[in-house]
Computed example of a mutant assay.
Amino acid sequence: MRVFKAVLAIAAALCLAGVAGWHYATDWRPSTGEYPIQGIDVSEETGPVDWLTARARGVDFAYARAIRAGTRRDRLFQSNWAALGEAGIRRGVIHQFSLCRSAEAQADAFITFVPRFLDALPAVVELDFDEGCARRPERAELLGSIQAFLKVVEHHTGSPMLLKISEPFEKQYQVSGAVARPLWATQDFFEPLYLARPWRMWQASTIRRIDGVDRPVHWNVVAP
């Protein structure tokens, strides 16, 4: 009986430690002293956001995904964009690049669905592998497609785009050293080191929970 009670006590302690650790992880963000400008990026996967509450929780800026899988408009883009403006939060647009769509088709989709916003932060092209696209072009072809896309879209927006590059994508294609644009790195909790040049933005958590959003958010910081 004593052994059984001891086992239960240990199990309970481990459970409590796990709950405390998970709470810490979902509440964590980089120090505002080191990174004073912090914000989130959202998509239809995030669900509805109470932007006034999010701003009160330390959201200085937000990026809303506009295009999914290269050519499809994100279902919540328009509502997110309008609500961000009403909340007075600096806002920008993300285009999810697809290896299964041509650069021309993707640029056309961006121009069709994303008007030129004079108050917008620099737009972002997100480079990552998509489960819905198995195609893996050669590096030279991919870099040419990215450059062709940037040429058209940057003419539309009037400013250089940021490249948000995942670590697996960078390892395969080494984009950061070949395309001269500001970089956005992604790695939970630990400062990323996989890019060829210093990053301008860092997605530091994909599991942070904040008031005003029912689901976890992607939490980002700007390099000081």
Rank of each mutant, 00 (worst) to 15 (best):
E138I: 10
R73P: 13
R101P: 04
A105Y: 00
R68L: 07
W22V: 07
W199C: 09
R91E: 04
C100Q: 05
I40V: 15
A120W: 05
V3C: 04
R90P: 09
C133Q: 02
G58R: 01
E191W: 12
E104N: 11
A123Y: 14
H23T: 13
F77P: 08
I210G: 02
G177V: 11
D60S: 14
K171R: 15
K5L: 15
M1Q: 01
P198R: 08
G177W: 08
V59C: 03
I37D: 01
R181A: 04
A123V: 11
A185I: 14
R2G: 00
N80F: 14
V179G: 09
D41F: 14
E86A: 12
T26A: 04
I207G: 06
G158Y: 01
V42P: 00
G144S: 09
F110N: 04
L143P: 03
W199F: 13
S79P: 04
V153L: 01
S31A: 11
R72Q: 06
A109S: 14
T206W: 12
T206F: 11
W184C: 07
C15H: 02
A83V: 13
F190E: 11
F97S: 12
W51R: 03
P198H: 08
E141C: 08
V125T: 11
F169I: 03
Y173A: 07
V213N: 04
D119L: 04
F189D: 05
R73D: 01
C100N: 05
D27Q: 14
P216F: 10
S166V: 12
D60K: 12
A66P: 11
L150A: 13
E170Q: 10
E45F: 15
N80M: 09
G33L: 08
D27K: 12
A140M: 02
D74K: 08
S176Y: 06
A148W: 05
R116P: 09
Q78P: 04
G47L: 07
S166H: 13
I89C: 00
V153D: 01
R209A: 04
F117C: 12
K151G: 07
A223S: 15
R136S: 08
R139F: 00
D128W: 03
L84A: 15
I89S: 05
A17H: 10
R68K: 11
F110C: 04
R101Q: 12
T32N: 00
V49Y: 02
Q203Y: 00
P115N: 02
R55Y: 08
T32I: 10
C15T: 12
W199T: 12
F110V: 15
F190S: 11
I210A: 02
A17I: 14
R72V: 13
A82R: 15
L52Q: 05
A62Q: 03
I67C: 03
I146T: 13
H23F: 14
A105W: 01
R91K: 15
A178D: 04
A82I: 11
E141K: 09
E131M: 05
V93I: 15
F117R: 13
V179I: 15
I37R: 13
P224Y: 11
D211G: 14
A62W: 03
H95G: 03
R72G: 06
F129C: 01
F169Y: 10
Q38E: 00
G132L: 06
S166E: 02
I146N: 02
C100R: 08
C133Y: 05
A123K: 09
T53Q: 05
W51H: 07
S205M: 10
R72W: 02
A12N: 02
T71R: 09
G70H: 01
A62V: 09
Q96M: 14
